[in-house]
Amino acid sequence: MSIILDHVNYVYEAGTAMEFAALKDVSLTINEGEFIGLIGHTGSGKSTLVQHLNGLLVPTGGNIYYNGKDIHDKEYNKKELRSRVGLVFQYPEHQLFEIDVFSDVCFGPKNLGLDRKEVELRAYAALKQVGIEDEYFYQSPFDLSGGQKRRVAIAGVLAMKPDVLVLDEPTAGLDPKGRDEILDQIAGLREETGMTVILVSHSMEDVARYVGRIIVMNRGQVMFDDVPRAVFRHYRELEEVGLAAPQVTYIMQALRKSGLDVDTDLTTIEEAREEILRAVGK
Protein backbone atom coordinates (compact mmCIF):
# COMPACT_ATOMS: atom_id res chain seq x y z
CA MET A 1 0.00 0.00 0.00
CA SER A 2 2.12 2.93 -1.12
CA ILE A 3 2.41 5.75 -3.59
CA ILE A 4 5.62 6.07 -5.53
CA LEU A 5 6.49 9.11 -7.61
CA ASP A 6 9.28 8.32 -10.00
CA HIS A 7 11.06 11.34 -11.51
CA VAL A 8 7.84 13.27 -11.97
CA ASN A 9 7.89 16.48 -13.99
CA TYR A 10 5.04 18.81 -14.70
CA VAL A 11 5.09 21.79 -17.03
CA TYR A 12 2.15 24.20 -17.27
CA GLU A 13 1.24 25.60 -20.69
CA ALA A 14 4.13 23.90 -22.39
CA GLY A 15 5.25 25.55 -25.59
CA THR A 16 3.76 28.97 -24.81
CA ALA A 17 5.19 32.19 -23.43
CA MET A 18 3.65 31.24 -20.08
CA GLU A 19 5.50 27.93 -19.90
CA PHE A 20 6.28 27.16 -16.30
CA ALA A 21 7.81 24.09 -14.73
CA ALA A 22 5.78 23.43 -11.58
CA LEU A 23 7.44 20.13 -10.71
CA LYS A 24 11.01 19.24 -11.52
CA ASP A 25 12.15 15.65 -11.17
CA VAL A 26 10.26 14.80 -8.02
CA SER A 27 10.80 11.31 -6.63
CA LEU A 28 9.02 10.29 -3.44
CA THR A 29 7.71 7.22 -1.68
CA ILE A 30 4.67 7.58 0.53
CA ASN A 31 4.17 4.55 2.74
CA GLU A 32 1.03 3.20 4.25
CA GLY A 33 -0.06 4.81 7.49
CA GLU A 34 2.34 7.75 7.33
CA PHE A 35 1.36 11.20 8.58
CA ILE A 36 3.12 13.66 6.32
CA GLY A 37 3.32 17.44 6.27
CA LEU A 38 3.91 18.87 2.80
CA ILE A 39 5.25 22.38 3.25
CA GLY A 40 6.07 25.11 0.78
CA HIS A 41 5.14 28.69 0.06
CA THR A 42 2.65 29.69 -2.64
CA GLY A 43 3.92 28.60 -6.02
CA SER A 44 6.37 26.02 -4.68
CA GLY A 45 4.54 23.23 -6.47
CA LYS A 46 2.88 21.59 -3.48
CA SER A 47 -0.68 21.94 -4.82
CA THR A 48 0.42 20.69 -8.22
CA LEU A 49 2.07 17.73 -6.56
CA VAL A 50 -1.03 16.60 -4.66
CA GLN A 51 -3.15 16.80 -7.80
CA HIS A 52 -0.86 14.17 -9.25
CA LEU A 53 -1.54 11.75 -6.44
CA ASN A 54 -5.09 11.00 -7.58
CA GLY A 55 -4.44 11.40 -11.28
CA LEU A 56 -6.13 14.79 -11.75
CA LEU A 57 -2.99 16.04 -13.40
CA VAL A 58 -0.99 13.86 -15.72
CA PRO A 59 2.77 14.30 -15.36
CA THR A 60 4.54 15.65 -18.42
CA GLY A 61 7.40 13.34 -17.47
CA GLY A 62 7.93 10.41 -15.10
CA ASN A 63 5.52 7.89 -13.57
CA ILE A 64 3.29 7.52 -10.57
CA TYR A 65 2.57 4.13 -9.03
CA TYR A 66 -0.19 3.30 -6.61
CA ASN A 67 0.29 -0.09 -4.99
CA GLY A 68 2.82 -0.97 -7.62
CA LYS A 69 0.61 -0.14 -10.61
CA ASP A 70 1.18 2.76 -12.98
CA ILE A 71 -1.89 4.98 -12.56
CA HIS A 72 -1.64 6.31 -16.11
CA ASP A 73 -1.74 2.87 -17.62
CA LYS A 74 -4.59 2.53 -20.13
CA GLU A 75 -6.23 -0.26 -18.14
CA TYR A 76 -5.98 1.52 -14.83
CA ASN A 77 -9.29 2.52 -13.26
CA LYS A 78 -8.93 6.21 -12.42
CA LYS A 79 -12.27 6.44 -10.73
CA GLU A 80 -11.29 3.66 -8.36
CA LEU A 81 -8.01 5.50 -7.69
CA ARG A 82 -9.88 8.67 -6.80
CA SER A 83 -11.86 6.81 -4.18
CA ARG A 84 -8.66 5.31 -2.75
CA VAL A 85 -6.78 8.61 -2.67
CA GLY A 86 -9.18 11.24 -1.33
CA LEU A 87 -8.20 14.80 -2.13
CA VAL A 88 -9.68 17.70 -0.20
CA PHE A 89 -9.04 20.97 -2.01
CA GLN A 90 -8.37 24.35 -0.49
CA TYR A 91 -11.54 26.05 0.74
CA PRO A 92 -13.47 22.79 0.19
CA GLU A 93 -16.68 24.41 1.47
CA HIS A 94 -16.83 26.22 -1.86
CA GLN A 95 -17.74 22.90 -3.48
CA LEU A 96 -20.82 22.21 -1.40
CA PHE A 97 -23.91 22.22 -3.55
CA GLU A 98 -26.64 19.94 -2.23
CA ILE A 99 -29.86 20.91 -0.55
CA ASP A 100 -28.83 19.52 2.83
CA VAL A 101 -25.66 18.43 4.59
CA PHE A 102 -26.42 14.72 4.41
CA SER A 103 -27.08 14.59 0.67
CA ASP A 104 -23.93 16.54 0.02
CA VAL A 105 -21.84 13.98 1.84
CA CYS A 106 -23.66 11.22 -0.08
CA PHE A 107 -22.43 12.64 -3.39
CA GLY A 108 -19.02 10.93 -3.28
CA PRO A 109 -20.11 7.39 -2.35
CA LYS A 110 -23.07 7.67 -4.74
CA ASN A 111 -20.64 8.33 -7.57
CA LEU A 112 -18.90 5.08 -6.67
CA GLY A 113 -22.07 3.25 -7.65
CA LEU A 114 -22.78 1.81 -4.20
CA ASP A 115 -26.30 0.88 -3.18
CA ARG A 116 -28.34 3.41 -1.29
CA LYS A 117 -28.01 1.80 2.09
CA GLU A 118 -24.24 1.62 1.90
CA VAL A 119 -24.09 5.24 0.67
CA GLU A 120 -26.12 6.44 3.62
CA LEU A 121 -24.17 4.39 6.12
CA ARG A 122 -20.93 5.82 4.86
CA ALA A 123 -22.24 9.39 4.86
CA TYR A 124 -23.47 8.96 8.41
CA ALA A 125 -20.15 7.53 9.57
CA ALA A 126 -18.17 10.27 7.83
CA LEU A 127 -20.22 13.06 9.37
CA LYS A 128 -19.74 11.48 12.79
CA GLN A 129 -16.01 11.22 12.15
CA VAL A 130 -15.71 14.98 11.64
CA GLY A 131 -17.93 15.68 14.63
CA ILE A 132 -21.08 16.97 12.93
CA GLU A 133 -24.10 16.26 15.11
CA ASP A 134 -27.37 14.75 13.83
CA GLU A 135 -29.24 18.01 14.27
CA TYR A 136 -27.30 19.54 11.37
CA PHE A 137 -27.86 16.67 8.92
CA TYR A 138 -30.91 18.12 7.26
CA GLN A 139 -29.86 21.76 7.33
CA SER A 140 -28.68 23.55 4.24
CA PRO A 141 -24.88 23.39 4.16
CA PHE A 142 -24.85 27.11 3.40
CA ASP A 143 -26.34 27.98 6.80
CA LEU A 144 -23.46 26.47 8.77
CA SER A 145 -20.52 28.35 10.25
CA GLY A 146 -17.22 28.45 8.37
CA GLY A 147 -15.58 25.71 10.41
CA GLN A 148 -18.63 23.44 10.17
CA LYS A 149 -18.88 23.89 6.41
CA ARG A 150 -15.30 22.84 6.07
CA ARG A 151 -15.84 19.75 8.17
CA VAL A 152 -18.86 18.77 6.10
CA ALA A 153 -16.75 19.17 2.97
CA ILE A 154 -14.05 16.96 4.44
CA ALA A 155 -16.71 14.39 5.35
CA GLY A 156 -17.72 14.44 1.68
CA VAL A 157 -14.33 12.97 0.83
CA LEU A 158 -14.11 10.70 3.87
CA ALA A 159 -17.39 9.06 2.89
CA MET A 160 -15.57 7.52 -0.06
CA LYS A 161 -13.48 5.62 2.52
CA PRO A 162 -10.11 6.54 1.06
CA ASP A 163 -6.90 4.79 2.14
CA VAL A 164 -4.98 8.02 1.66
CA LEU A 165 -6.38 11.39 2.66
CA VAL A 166 -4.74 14.48 1.19
CA LEU A 167 -5.79 17.87 2.54
CA ASP A 168 -4.67 21.02 0.74
CA GLU A 169 -4.37 23.74 3.37
CA PRO A 170 -7.31 22.58 5.44
CA THR A 171 -6.94 25.49 7.87
CA ALA A 172 -6.73 28.37 5.37
CA GLY A 173 -8.87 31.31 6.43
CA LEU A 174 -10.02 29.75 9.71
CA ASP A 175 -9.47 31.42 13.06
CA PRO A 176 -7.13 29.75 15.61
CA LYS A 177 -9.99 27.93 17.28
CA GLY A 178 -11.33 26.54 14.02
CA ARG A 179 -7.83 25.63 12.94
CA ASP A 180 -7.07 23.65 16.11
CA GLU A 181 -10.41 21.86 15.93
CA ILE A 182 -9.84 20.72 12.35
CA LEU A 183 -6.26 19.62 12.94
CA ASP A 184 -7.14 17.74 16.12
CA GLN A 185 -9.97 16.04 14.30
CA ILE A 186 -7.72 14.95 11.46
CA ALA A 187 -5.11 13.63 13.88
CA GLY A 188 -7.80 11.73 15.79
CA LEU A 189 -9.19 10.33 12.58
CA ARG A 190 -5.83 9.01 11.57
CA GLU A 191 -5.34 7.35 14.90
CA GLU A 192 -8.73 5.71 14.66
CA THR A 193 -8.56 4.48 11.06
CA GLY A 194 -4.83 4.20 10.44
CA MET A 195 -5.14 5.84 7.06
CA THR A 196 -2.29 7.68 5.39
CA VAL A 197 -2.67 11.44 5.78
CA ILE A 198 -0.89 14.16 3.83
CA LEU A 199 -1.34 17.64 5.20
CA VAL A 200 -0.42 20.46 2.82
CA SER A 201 0.37 23.69 4.60
CA HIS A 202 2.58 26.72 4.62
CA SER A 203 2.78 26.77 8.36
CA MET A 204 5.49 24.72 10.05
CA GLU A 205 4.08 25.47 13.47
CA ASP A 206 0.72 23.97 12.55
CA VAL A 207 2.04 20.67 11.26
CA ALA A 208 5.06 20.20 13.54
CA ARG A 209 2.82 19.08 16.39
CA TYR A 210 1.16 16.34 14.39
CA VAL A 211 3.19 14.83 11.60
CA GLY A 212 5.97 12.27 11.59
CA ARG A 213 7.57 13.38 8.38
CA ILE A 214 7.95 16.73 6.64
CA ILE A 215 8.49 17.22 2.95
CA VAL A 216 9.57 20.76 2.05
CA MET A 217 8.96 21.89 -1.53
CA ASN A 218 10.70 24.79 -3.17
CA ARG A 219 10.51 25.85 -6.82
CA GLY A 220 9.04 22.55 -7.87
CA GLN A 221 11.65 20.42 -6.15
CA VAL A 222 11.84 18.49 -2.92
CA MET A 223 14.15 20.51 -0.71
CA PHE A 224 14.01 18.46 2.50
CA ASP A 225 12.33 15.18 3.37
CA ASP A 226 12.85 14.00 6.92
CA VAL A 227 11.45 13.86 10.44
CA PRO A 228 10.44 17.33 11.71
CA ARG A 229 13.36 17.92 14.05
CA ALA A 230 15.85 17.09 11.34
CA VAL A 231 14.13 19.45 8.91
CA PHE A 232 14.08 22.30 11.43
CA ARG A 233 17.85 22.02 11.82
CA HIS A 234 17.95 23.73 8.45
CA TYR A 235 16.07 26.73 9.76
CA ARG A 236 18.39 29.17 7.99
CA GLU A 237 17.84 27.57 4.58
CA LEU A 238 14.12 27.42 5.27
CA GLU A 239 14.10 31.13 5.93
CA GLU A 240 15.83 31.83 2.67
CA VAL A 241 12.95 30.24 0.78
CA GLY A 242 10.33 32.16 2.73
CA LEU A 243 9.49 29.50 5.29
CA ALA A 244 10.26 29.46 8.97
CA ALA A 245 10.83 26.79 11.57
CA PRO A 246 8.57 26.95 14.64
CA GLN A 247 9.50 29.75 17.00
CA VAL A 248 10.70 27.17 19.53
CA THR A 249 13.61 26.32 17.24
CA TYR A 250 14.70 29.96 17.22
CA ILE A 251 14.38 30.25 20.97
CA MET A 252 16.55 27.20 21.56
CA GLN A 253 19.14 28.38 19.04
CA ALA A 254 19.26 31.82 20.69
CA LEU A 255 19.64 30.24 24.14
CA ARG A 256 22.45 28.03 22.89
CA LYS A 257 24.22 31.07 21.50
CA SER A 258 23.87 32.91 24.79
CA GLY A 259 25.85 30.13 26.44
CA LEU A 260 23.06 28.00 27.91
CA ASP A 261 23.79 24.33 27.21
CA VAL A 262 20.53 23.17 25.66
CA ASP A 263 19.58 20.65 23.03
CA THR A 264 18.29 22.59 20.00
CA ASP A 265 16.50 19.68 18.31
CA LEU A 266 13.11 20.36 19.85
CA THR A 267 9.76 20.97 18.26
CA THR A 268 7.21 21.57 20.98
CA ILE A 269 6.79 23.92 23.92
CA GLU A 270 6.62 21.03 26.40
CA GLU A 271 9.97 19.67 25.24
CA ALA A 272 11.49 23.13 25.37
CA ARG A 273 10.24 23.73 28.90
CA GLU A 274 11.72 20.46 30.16
CA GLU A 275 15.01 21.14 28.44
CA ILE A 276 15.35 24.68 29.79
CA LEU A 277 14.45 23.59 33.30
CA ARG A 278 17.09 20.88 33.05
CA ALA A 279 19.71 23.32 31.74
CA VAL A 280 19.20 25.90 34.47
CA GLY A 281 19.24 23.10 37.00
CA LYS A 282 15.75 23.10 38.46
Binding site: L87, H94, N111, M160
Partner: peptide, 16 residues
Protein backbone atom coordinates in the same frame (compact mmCIF):
# COMPACT_ATOMS: atom_id res chain seq x y z
CA UNK B 1 -10.12 29.67 -12.76
CA UNK B 2 -12.71 28.95 -10.13
CA UNK B 3 -14.69 26.76 -12.53
CA UNK B 4 -11.56 24.78 -13.20
CA UNK B 5 -10.96 24.31 -9.50
CA UNK B 6 -14.51 23.29 -8.61
CA UNK B 7 -14.55 20.86 -11.49
CA UNK B 8 -11.38 19.20 -10.28
CA UNK B 9 -12.69 19.05 -6.73
CA UNK B 10 -15.88 17.34 -7.85
CA UNK B 11 -13.95 14.93 -10.04
CA UNK B 12 -11.95 14.08 -6.93
CA UNK B 13 -15.30 13.15 -5.38
CA UNK B 14 -16.01 10.85 -8.26
CA UNK B 15 -18.09 13.21 -10.39
CA UNK B 16 -18.17 12.48 -14.09
Amino acid sequence: EETDKIMKAQIARGAD
